[in-house]
Amino acid sequence: MSTERARLPAMKDRVMENDWVQFLISPGIGIAWVLGLLFLPMTIILVISFAIPGDFGNVIYEFTTANYERFVNAGVYQSIILESLMYGVVVTLIALPAGYTVGYFLGRSKTDWKWVLLGLVVLQYWVPFIIRTYAWIIVLSNNGVLNTLLMDVGVIAQPLDVMYSNVSMILGLTVSLLPFMILPVYVSVSTIEEDQIHAAKTLGATDFRAFREITLPQSLPGIVSGILFVFIISAGAFLAPTLLGGPTTRMIAPIIEGVFINDFNWPFAAALSMIYFAIIAFLLYLFTRRVDLEEALETGAT
């Protein structure tokens, strides 16, 4: 080993061993990606939400609070946001027991079919939303599969008018989002040792007590993660209200899209986005006071 080498580490070494260089590559690049492509754009639409709309998506950079005033004065947007959140709650409330039951079944059952059933949920999870949503159109519409079959059999004379309504929208959305509930619940239920439940029962607990005292608390991380994903995705859903909803179905995502694309009113679309985002962020904030957000996301995403 020569003296020079010791005194003057190669330029490459000096660069690679520099703490800042290392930080910028790992993890800096990912942080930069999110900051540059999400936080920066969000900041820009925050700015634009205080600007004046021009023609054809142009923005006139002059400070105004008109976009927010319009939101406050025209009560319709407030009720749309409220309704979106309500749909989110409804879908979550249906998906929770249904998804929990299936997740519990998969976690507890010992049939040989279990892996197939589990695989089907994962596959379902992979199927694009647009296809899962579209499927309900063919099934439920007036000349769709359900009505055709029922009329052929003679159960009904007139087609059931379920398509293009809140019912079809909620149904489609819920079924689409079930995997988000099933998989994390399955993961947390399957890690509970069955001996614990047997032990509780030998100690005199009823089925229900054993479930409440042992299974439920330990599957809480799965539930929390499921609720988080199902609620956020359903409240902000675009496809289901657009394709399956009826005349009275109003949700925020299609409204923002309409303002943005049809009205070409970018500042107002930006304002609506910011308001909706602020509400979601606030709900998340309430959420994080009780549970670990990172853990919930990790449970749901892996």
Binding site: P27, V34, G236, I280, E294
Partner: peptide, 23 residues
């Protein structure tokens, strides 16, 4: 910073779509 990194999961896609387009 972890939450920053996970935020694309939290921001509704409609907003990501609009924000990036405007940006």
């Amino acid at each position: 910073l972890v939450i920053v990194l996970l935020s694309p999961l939290l921001v509704p896609p409609i907003i990501v779509g609009v924000a990036a387009t405007i940006f």
